[in-house]
């Protein structure tokens, strides 16, 4: 009996494949169905930011990433550095919170491009 089980476990991987696919595709279908939502968000966020900075349509990316417990909505906005006002940074908040969704600090931008 044990030997039988052993062999069954070794070879019957198809049910695992099937289960993984079902989970994954349920999620992917939901996301691709809502890709319009991301586009709408992108446009609306863009409109708000454009009131204050000259931003280009290509300068903004909105991404939805799915995690096991929480998912994140990542918004990245590129602004030409000369257009950025220099914010007086409060002393204790200098290292920016990595979960901060919108980053408009010129320093952060420069560090990311690695120049």
């Amino acid at each position: 009996m044990k030997i039988l089980n052993f062999f069954k476990q070794r070879t019957s991987t198809a049910p695992v494949a099937r289960e993984r696919l079902q989970l994954l595709l349920a999620h992917e279908r939901a996301v691709s169905g809502k890709s319009d939502l991301i586009a709408i968000l992108q446009e609306e966020i863009m409109a708000v930011i454009a009131k204050h900075f000259p931003v280009e349509q290509e300068g903004i990316t909105v991404k939805m990433e799915r995690g096991e417990v929480v998912s994140t909505l990542e918004v990245e906005v590129e602004i030409p550095t000369p257009m950025c006002p220099s914010f007086p940074l409060p002393a204790n908040s200098a290292p920016s919170d990595p979960s901060e969704p919108v980053s408009i600090e010129p320093e952060t931008k420069m560090a990311r491009t690695g120049s």
């Binding site: 070879t11 494949a17 099937r18």
Partner: peptide, 10 residues
């Protein structure tokens, strides 16, 4: 048939 591959129904 041996469960090594997804079957048609899957």
């Amino acid at each position: 048939g041996r469960g090594e591959m997804l079957n048609v129904g899957d």
